[in-house]
Design a protein around this nucleic acid. Structure first.
Lengths: 204, 204
DNA sequence: ACATTTATGAACAATCTGTTCATTTAGATT
DNA sequence: AATCTAAATGAACAGATTGTTCATAAATGT
């Protein structure tokens, strides 16, 4: 089941994946049958089982791939900060990885919508959410270490969830509203809200 | 299908509902069959169909009931503020309804977990999330009006989603970690993060 | 005690799943 | 171009689940 070089395998898997994405967004995860997928992909039903155990495995594998791709982009953007000056760090430590997430989301909008809508079972969206949570915790750890600041009074766990939650909330809103702002604008909004909340918006 | 006074109907529905909640939390929404539900509830399988069309209707109805119950508590807590002094308002306009949500979540922990985990289809969790979004928008509208402040620079839509997102993120974290803080502590964290972000936690 | 509503279990067709297998088709290799 | 190999196909199958009908039994309200 794991070899490289047959066009048919790659083409078939790509067709199955895209058919699944389309059908989930059209009808919802639960209503999609294997036969729906293979019909949309112009393939025989048995062909599906040559590649995947079931709907869930196909979707989970897609999420793992997209998550690894995102991580591979975010990780270097964090290490990168070790060699920069303080003011630059303060400005960009949050901004840089957040921009990456918005860019990544727009480039994989269908799958992001599926994940963020919570289609499929608990573990499907949570596999991705936990990755974002870990990334948020890393960013904060880097920030705390690099900027040599005191321990915050709120539980670090709560702060990580808040950061990740805000990011995913705004990415969701952005995708579901057909990208009404640019990536830079969205990233700046996230930075603004995560760092200052409403305090700069009106007197609190 | 809509009459009041037969104990059997009420008892049966209650048993079906609780059986469904338990089974979802144990095995995940997708894996729960009607027969699982009626077995757990000690009822015949056909009895289920005397009351509900399918799993989804039972869950959606539960969510509607819980949502209406929450709204009926939050609405008066907002009106209440029309007659208070400014300082009290600033302190409690956010705090009061947020406390209500945490209290409500702890009193209906199973159903909240189901909703917030995103079990079931898209529309299931979204029916509830959209209600929280509306409530958050109302709270901000009241705040802006009562405090007579300028229009914020961020889109009001984004701010509403941020507020609701933060609230639901922390409620989720709280329930999934077995209520490690009190309701008041959690509500204060939400207020702190929504109003000030990380700015009071470390220099930004 | 009686009339009515509700619960029950058997039986049914319909749908979907996941698998097997013999056959056809397409890609890779030389 | 000919050949070898891997992949796709469609038919057929058993098993699960759904949603319905119906006759019967049990519980409830008055």
């Amino acid at each position: 089941m794991e070899r490289q070089p047959d066009r048919r395998r790659l083409r078939t898997r790509k067709q199955l994946r895209e058919a699944l994405f389309e059908l989930i967004l059209e009808n919802g995860y639960d209503l999609v049958t294997i036969e729906d997928i293979t019909n949309r992909a112009d393939l025989g039903r048995t062909t599906f089982y040559l590649h995947f155990k079931d709907k869930e495995q196909l979707l989970l594998q897609s999420i793992d791939e997209i998550a690894n791709d995102l991580i591979s982009q975010i990780d270097p953007s964090l290490i990168f900060f070790s060699s920069e000056n303080l003011e630059y760090k303060r400005q960009n430590l949050i901004l840089a990885p957040v921009k990456l997430v918005f860019k990544h989301a727009s480039e994989n909008a269908n799958l992001y919508k599926i994940i963020l809508r919570g289609e499929g079972a608990f573990k499907i969206s949570n596999r991705f959410r936990s990755i974002i949570n870990i990334a948020a915790a890393q960013i904060m750890a880097v920030r705390i270490k690099e900027l040599e600041i005191d321990q915050p009074s709120l539980p670090i766990d709560v702060m990580g969830n808040f950061f990740a939650g805000t990011l995913l909330t705004l990415v969701t809103w952005w995708l579901e509203n057909d990208l009404p702002y640019s990536i830079d604008e969205m990233a700046n909004m996230v930075r603004e809200l995560v760092l200052f909340g409403f305090s700069k918006q009106f007197p609190v």
